[in-house]
Design a protein around this nucleic acid. Sequence first.
DNA 1: CAGAAAACGTAGAACGATACACGTAGAACA
DNA 2: TGTTCTACGTGTATCGTTCTACGTTTTCTG
Lengths: 341, 341
Amino acid sequence: MASTEKDKGNRRVTIREVAEDAGVSVAAVSKVLRDAYGVSDTLRAKVRQSMDALGYRPLAAARGMRGQTYTIGLVLPDIRNPFFSDIMTGVNNALERTQYRALIGISQSSATGEMAIVEAMIDRQMDGIILIGATEDRANLDAIAARKPLVAVGHHEPDITTFDTVNNNDQQGGQLVVRQMVAAGYKRIAMIGLKSTTSTILAEREIGYRRGMIEAGLGSAINIVQESQTLRDVQITARRMLQAPNRPDAIFCWTDFIALEVISVATELGLRIPEDVGIAGYDNTVYCDFAQNGLSSIDQSGELLGLQATRLLIERIQGRSQAEHFVVPPRLVIRRSTSPG
Amino acid sequence: MASTEKDKGNRRVTIREVAEDAGVSVAAVSKVLRDAYGVSDTLRAKVRQSMDALGYRPLAAARGMRGQTYTIGLVLPDIRNPFFSDIMTGVNNALERTQYRALIGISQSSATGEMAIVEAMIDRQMDGIILIGATEDRANLDAIAARKPLVAVGHHEPDITTFDTVNNNDQQGGQLVVRQMVAAGYKRIAMIGLKSTTSTILAEREIGYRRGMIEAGLGSAINIVQESQTLRDVQITARRMLQAPNRPDAIFCWTDFIALEVISVATELGLRIPEDVGIAGYDNTVYCDFAQNGLSSIDQSGELLGLQATRLLIERIQGRSQAEHFVVPPRLVIRRSTSPG
DNA sequence: CAGAAAACGTAGAACGATACACGTAGAACA
DNA sequence: TGTTCTACGTGTATCGTTCTACGTTTTCTG
C-alpha cells in the first residue's frame, strides 16, 4: 500500500527531516548546504551531524528550481579519441573537492548534433558548459553563452568576450612538426586536414604548417588535403597521396587517429616508415607510444586543458563576466615515425 | 535592472505561458507534453502550435520534482576504450525518437568510484541507469536497483532478479580464441587477465580459455596471468612472460588495449608476430584493423549491446519488474596476429 | 431515451530545495 | 542610556512542472 509499483524503495530523506532532527529551521540547513553566510560553527556542526546520521543527500532537481544544480556539462564530439580522456581527467581533478559533478554528452551521435545536446543540458539546469572541439558558429556559441557560463576547449576565438577559451597553441604545434620534419631531411611535406569550415583549431594547425614550410623555403611544396574523418575516406585519400607520381615524403596528420590510419595504408603499400615516408600526428594519444606505431606527435597537455577549463568555468559560475583565454604551449614528442637514418 | 549579473539573458518560456497562449489550462499542456490520456486532437494541435511559436522547452528540474526527468545515466569505467563508443552509438540510436537523453559519467576518475557517480546520478533524478563493466558487488548493485531501474552491461549474473543484464557470451568468446589459436598451430597459449575480483566478464573469459585449452588436450599448459591495467604494469608483465625460458607461443589478452601493448613489447624484443608469438584481443576495436597491428579479436557487437540495454531500461522505467538477461554470441575476427604460415 | 461509461478538461495541491525579508541578541560606540 | 552595527537564525513565498480529484460533456448501450 505504501509503495506503488513505480515507487522504488524507501523515500529520500529531505531537508525538512534534517532540520527537525537537528532542531533548527529548514533555512538554516539550506545555508549549511550552500556554505552560505550566517551560520555559526556550532549550528553547522549540529546540522552536519544530523545529515550524516540520516544519510541526507540534497536533491539536485529541487535545488535547480531556485539555485544551482552543481552539475557541469561536458560536450565531446565523440568518445573515440583517447585525448578526450586526458581532458576528462583534468576536469575531474579540478572538481575533486567541490560539490560539482561533471556529466558528459556526446554530440556526434546525437541526431541534431552539438546544439541539441547543449540544449538538453540547459533544460537540465546545468550550471555551466564546457564545449570541446566546438563545431558551432559564433552566433550559436554566443546564444549559449548568453544563457549559461561557457568555456570552449579547442576553439580559437581570442577576441571573443562572451565566453572563455582554453587551447594549446595549434599554430605553433603545426610549425614544430614541420620544423622537425625538415630537420630530419624531409622535403615534400604534405598535410592531411579535415573537411570542415568550422574548426578553428584545424585552421590554426594549417597556418602553422604553412609558416613552417615557408620559413624552410618549401613554400612551393605546400600541399594540404582535406578529408572527412571516416575510416574509409581517410584510406582512399592516403592511398591516393602515397601512390601519386611525386608522392610526399612526409605527412603531417591533423590528429593521431588519421596518422595511424596513414601508417596502416603506407605499410600495406610496402612503404617503409620513416625511410620512405615520415608521419606525424597531433594529440600524443596513448597509441603513439606503441612500438608498432612509434608515432611522432604533438602533446597538448589534455589534462591541464581540462583542469584549466573547469577552473575558468567555476569562476564564471561564481560571477566573473570578463572573458579569459588560456593557451598552453605545445610540445613535440619525436618518435620513430619521423626519425630516419 | 531587470537582469542581475547572474541572470543570464532572457527568461525561459514556462508551461503557464504556453497554456495562456493556447487558451487552455496548464494541466492540459502538461498532458500533451507527456502524451497522457485525455487530450483531443484539436487541443493537442493547439498546444503544440503554441509551444512551437513560443519556443517552449520543458525544464527537466521542474519535471523531476513530480515525475520523470527523461534522462538516463550511462556509467563508464573509463573513456579510453573505443569499444564504449560503439555501445554509446547503440544507446543513442535507441533513444532517437524518444524524449530521453543519455548523459555519461566516468567512474574511474571519480574519487570514490562507481558508487559515487551512481549516487550523483540518482541525486539528479535520472530515470534509470546503465552500468557498463560494473565493479560493484551484488549488494551494492541491488541497492541501486532498489531505487532506480538498472541495466548492467558486461556483468554476468543470470540469476539476478532485481535488474537486467546485457552481455556477449564471454565464455564462448574465450573458447573461440583458443580454438583458432590451436588450429593455427599454437600450443603454449597463455592468457593475460585483470587483477580484479569483481569482473564477472573476465571470469567468464577465463573459463572459456580453460575450456578451450582442455578440449584441445592442452590442459597442462594453462597459464593465466593477472595484471592491473596500467600501461607500466602491462609492459612489465608482457616482458617477463615473453622472456621466460619456456615462453608462450601465443597470448590471449582479455582486452584489445592490452593486446596492442603486448604486440609493442614483443616487437621491441625482436619477436615476430605471428611467427614467434600469436596474439589476440577482445572487443574488436577500431585499432585492431590497422595494418601495423592486424590484431585478431572478438567482436561483441557493442552497438547492439547498447541498443538492447537501452530498450530494456526504458521498459523498466515504464514499469516492467521482471528481470531479463540478454546475451549476444561473440564473433571472432581473424587477422594477421594469429595467422602464421 | 435513460443511465452508464468514456472522454475531455480544469483547479489547485504537492514536490524539495533556495532566497528574500525579517527578527533578535549582543557588542560597540557616543 | 540610547543608537547603530553585526552575526546568527527563522518563516515562508517561490521555482515549473506533474498529479490527484473532480466537474462537465460526449458517446455508448440495452
